[in-house]
Nucleic acid binder design. Structure first.
Ligand SMILES: [Mn+2]
Ligand SMILES: [Mn+2]
Ligand SMILES: [Zn+2]
Ligand SMILES: [Zn+2]
Lengths: 157, 157
DNA sequence: GCTTTATTGAAAATCATTTTCGCTATTCAT
DNA sequence: ATGAATAGCGAAAATGATTTTCAATAAAGC
């Protein structure tokens, strides 16, 4: 559960989140700051769903409604602070956004839901070349590998 | 709208779908055959949602309920006849399954929803090596590139 | 400070998908 | 073929994550 030391500390200081929000006509609120803080303080490589965000904030004494959580997530995705992921069925996950060049990808255990991250420069290149080859302007690309993790393999065998 | 000439003609003859179903304890029904037929007769590279399946069947005079469509889709995914895709928000798409080695990937226009397919052997290799390196048993991997297609670019500029 | 209006929380709405249940149709043994 | 056992069907209700509504609140900017 260490704070992420690698990423630029956007929102680490309240100043910055407010600046980014106001630049686009959004308002700074304590709820949005708390949600961003949660991402900044959660373990590197951890992905949060709306439900987990609400539970964790509640654990630290902050009661925030789902409407507010979902609205905050959408705003932060639009501002490129967060990235939305479709790792598992039924719900979306969010993580701090990493600059396009350092994009990472995911290996998901379909049995227990464990997620591992990996970098692969090749991916971004392929995504880039495929999209330009067809005249698309690239927004982002996701590479997700589904399998069964070692511990689930031993449980199932 | 040509029938797909490349894939093995599973279900092209009623015999085969029945065989595959019965082998796993499922029953052959006319609804399941009609749904599979729809995939076989739709254009290569076309992806169908449950709603589109119902509409297209209705257009050809076959009324099938959503419960039946969803159940048939799940069965056929379990039997490896179909593959489930998460191309766009909010709904799932299905397509005839291609053998693992010939897996293809998708380029999606986030504005109009247009989908293009591309092959990229590299992907499967990376998925394979990443999963074995971490002790995962690989099930499948998806590479999806999001962008804006040429015609939407000109509309928006 | 004061005005404007974006944001909030609670509750209701949405909407793709799943489940329930009584009836029908397929399978398989006779 | 015939019949028993039961998987699958359709209609309608339920589910569950996400979105919207709306009255009250609180940022932003002058
Ligand atoms: Mn990640
Ligand atoms: Mn495809
Ligand atoms: Zn696992
Ligand atoms: Zn487009």
């Amino acid at each position: 559960m260490e704070p992420n030391p690698v990423l630029p500390s956007l929102g680490q200081e309240p100043e910055l989140l407010k600046t980014v929000l106001n630049k686009e006509g959004f308002r700074f609120t304590s709820q949005r700051q708390k949600i961003l803080d949660l991402f900044q303080s959660s373990a590197l490589g951890h992905h949060l769903s709306a439900e987990e965000i609400q539970r964790q904030l509640l654990d630290q004494g902050e009661k925030i409604s789902f409407s507010t959580i979902y609205r905050a997530l959408h705003v932060m995705v639009r501002l490129d602070l967060l990235q939305e992921l479709e790792l598992a069925e039924g719900r979306k996950y969010y993580e701090l956004n990493t600059p396009c060049m350092d994009q990472h990808h995911h290996l998901v255990c379909v049995h227990c839901g464990a997620v591992q991250e990996f970098d692969e420069a090749t991916m971004t290149q392929v995504g880039q070349s495929e999209s330009t080859a067809r005249g698309f302007s690239l927004l982002n690309c996701t590479f997700t590998v589904y399998g069964i993790c070692p511990s689930c393999q031993s449980l199932l065998s």
